[in-house]
Design a protein around this nucleic acid. Sequence first.
DNA 1: CGTTACGTTGAAAGCTTTCAAGCATCGTGG
DNA 2: CCACGATGCTTGAAAGCTTTCAACGTAACG
Lengths: 258, 258
Amino acid sequence: MKRRQTEAASSRLVQRHAASCESCPLRRLPSFRAFAPEELKFVSQLKVGEIIVPLGHVLLSEGQSSDMLYTLLEGWMYRHKSLTDGRRQILNFALPGDFIGLQSAMFKEMQHSVEALTEVRLCVFPRNKLWSLYSQQPGLAFDVTWLAAQEERMLDEHLLSIGRRTAIERMAYLLLLLHRRIAQLDLLMDDGFELPLNQQHVADTLGLSIVHTNKTLRKLHDFGVISWRKRTLRILDQTKLARVARFEDSHTGPRPLI
Amino acid sequence: MKRRQTEAASSRLVQRHAASCESCPLRRLPSFRAFAPEELKFVSQLKVGEIIVPLGHVLLSEGQSSDMLYTLLEGWMYRHKSLTDGRRQILNFALPGDFIGLQSAMFKEMQHSVEALTEVRLCVFPRNKLWSLYSQQPGLAFDVTWLAAQEERMLDEHLLSIGRRTAIERMAYLLLLLHRRIAQLDLLMDDGFELPLNQQHVADTLGLSIVHTNKTLRKLHDFGVISWRKRTLRILDQTKLARVARFEDSHTGPRPLI
DNA sequence: CGTTACGTTGAAAGCTTTCAAGCATCGTGG
DNA sequence: CCACGATGCTTGAAAGCTTTCAACGTAACG
């Protein structure tokens, strides 16, 4: 397997004027549950600011700890971890609304890294305020656990995928899942969306080599099921893709946005 | 891939006299954090009883919901999920002290099943009391999240294993991990322990076929690294096994027992 | 116009699975 | 006590899926 050096994270974090949570456009999406006024107020005072982080920046890294927690507001990130010889596994992608850094809040050391796939905008709050959330807002505390359970679910499915699906099934599953997640965020543009990954990312997500990833994508393309050109992915035949993936929908109702 | 029918769960659950949490022998192990008296009292009143469930019983199953949550007190269980054609992936094993059913508490439907690998004894409490835990005992609520994050960590590592480790590395990793977990529970008998799995379980955990699982185990055996006879596994050369697995220790301090 | 990053392909090698049989152990029933 | 069926473990061989190796093509950039 090929070794890859970690990308230099030479970037400067830019502190920005923080918009209020009440006006956060994400909250208006139907996939997020409505917060009571005092919940909103509480969440607002957790927030210490927003940052913008450039493509390639490693926000959290394996083996280190972090005093900050984040909510992704814009852009894509990915969670991954590696073996000592450089083999890398992508664990999941983070999209707007996703909570980042729970593990760093619970344990001393991160055991995975989180890196930006695009320029991203993040909401920042200090890890030590998390405790006040538990002591003052049990509903939000429950929400944090809910989010952790939700992440667990996605990992379960990903594990089933890598362990038991064939290459083409995995690919179909991944593309369909990303499509759904993007759709829920209302980021679909006439059935396509911007996919800021290269084939190496896809390979490292699916546990495949890059060559086989390429050939598998080609098959889906030749079957007329997808089209992926210039960073935009289009699902041309959802039904067929879902059949290939043995995709089963999981309706989870609205989720919290913290 | 071979299809497997789900085992019949014809068993009868036996309601038992419930021992108090204060006297629970698990709590005396150093791997569990000490609870304050009022925490103990609170946990005690969550509990509605204990059940004993026979080998092969499906405690929770994919697609269904559950009103009860559990803590495993004795025995082994495993979490797994399957594709429609029967291919199965084992997600994780549950050992004494493990909390079972968080997903059923958070969502309407379970997306995985939990089944007994041995006869097991479980502590039972109703899902609807979980809310009182969040509203009255923020420390315990934090613990529940901690446990969820811990499960997430194990899944991350498992994903790395299946996605990027070779068959023999995966096998080494799994056996070493189980060894560590058993050791922490003080269930080691002169460097060996009872492993209530067959090779099919191991195959379904590692994403391998049963034949290849057999051959991989044989290699480790022939190298003199392990011995697995009559349900008891012995790690003969931990250092070598850790090297093969590229195992990296993760020290997490004591964990909560709920 | 050379460099770099990324995508594409064909061919060979290698790891895993599938197929087929044969063994061993264990509990049951004759 | 022994035959028999059910499980689970082993093996060899062939087939198949994936990876590795090697090149080549393309687009973006300075």
